[in-house]
Write a protein that binds this DNA or RNA. Sequence first.
RNA 1: AGCGGGGUAGAGCAGUUGGCAGCUCGCCAGGCCCAUAACCUGGAGGUCGCCGGUUCGAGUCCGGCCCCCGCAACCA
Length: 503
Amino acid sequence: MPAHHTRYGVRIKTFYMLKEKKTFYITTTLPYVNAKPHIGFALEIIQADAIARWQRMQGKEVFFNTGTDEHGLKIYRKAQEEGKDPQKYVDEYAAKFDNLKKALNLSYNAFIRTTDENHIKAAQEFWKKCEQAGDIYKKNYKVKYCVGCELEKTESELANGKCSVHPNMELETIEEENYFFKFSNYQQKLLDLYEKNSEFVLPSWRLKEIKNFVAGGLEDFSISRLKEKMPWGIEVPGDDKHVMYVWFDALINYVSTLQWPFYVKASDGKPDKNSNYEKFWPGMQVAGKDNLRQQSAMWQAMLMSAGLPNSTQILIHGFINSGGQKMSKSLGNVVDPFELVEKYGTDALRYYLLSEITPFEDGDFTIEKFEKRYNADLANGLGNLVARMANMLEADSIELTVSSTERGELERGVNGKMKEFKFNEALKILWDELRKNDEELSKKKPWKVEDADKKGEILEPIAQSILSVADLLQPFLPETAEKIITQFSMKQIKRGDSLFPRI
RNA sequence: AGCGGGGUAGAGCAGUUGGCAGCUCGCCAGGCCCAUAACCUGGAGGUCGCCGGUUCGAGUCCGGCCCCCGCAACCA
């Protein structure tokens, strides 16, 4: 390659380094408020929280979004069942989800509800942009209808082509006029997007999956419902007979939470560089495997249509099973995150979900496994080591100089894993370090050493190591990390309450 | 049919670019006694789903087969 090309390459690189964003945006999907918070969502939001906290430690200004998805037929029905006004119903549920913030010690700074006034306006504006792009049109939409249930049925609700509740009745097909989104327009553009960004969707096999799906051809999807049948939605601009189908509206939260499209200065009509949208979009999304299509294909096509930049990356996690089986109410194996936190503590749950669950694959949760892990790693491991160290240091009034900046290799290891979102492996590195400290104590037996100075010489590097671990533990177990940091940063380290009592 | 994931010690799982098969729990033996009946050391236990190929060498790459799970479009 000619020399000037190389030089050009270097300049490009420098340019990008200078331009490297100082901000970082991450969002979860919005849980639908037709049920209580589920441990699967706890996994998603804890993963997102660990990433957000880690990014902050890297010096980034982070915008971390979550919220609730509140429109649609199921919620409308649920509210009716409970004899409540839909708005009142969703208000109650939104509060339940926002309670996760405290229960799971989450650091999100935005909680968007799809019934928020700003979101509604944003969704309507987004619709108009897609319409202007020529991607919205009206078409007949066929729905299967079970007279027995007096309800519309989707394919997945059917068994052998019949309603599973009324298998003896024929389903009726009814037709209504809906608005459709020209998903089919975006097949090639989506494939190009995937081609250009080899890590657009992680893990790689999920990217492969979505590529295959898109390459197989896209059908336009319905994005509205007749208001007279289902009024609980955002009104379609310019047509008061329709409301938006919940999916179309819900996805837009990722930008409406950043004040899109109200980021333009009134004075000169130019984008306000200090607006959240300008500062943070595009960003990263975390979603479950059931959301692969919606997030990495449908939403991306919608963004293209409306003329907004695509998301930067989509992380797809798996599901949590319970004893190898899907969690379901009928099996009675649904796990409630609030109960776990109340009984075992926030960091215990965070630790289990981040260390035991392989980030991209399905994981398993049982109380037995959870307690085993808790005792082995938190009580016997971290908790016991901190206690035995603090005890010795206090007993002999040994003063140490420990600093929280000497992390070196350990930090590089953890950061390497975090760049790949391998939370479990990052934690493994930290626990290997803790184990080394236990080994070291067994080998050097400081409790047998009489001389206080010599004892201090043995204990200081171990205390330093614990402090380093605690430092790096902040994104994962923020409360515990903080306790240890406070305890081990004192000149005279003192015994504290046990961090994780044995079960 | 197709697409995707998985099949590694009793259980649950790791195994980047091919190089003596690892981790946690459990089990057995020993040590220690500072600590949360904790911690440390050693040990038993595996034909890495099956067959074939490439290679000096394959859990790892290639081909074929078997079994389990998920998806299969409007399901938050």
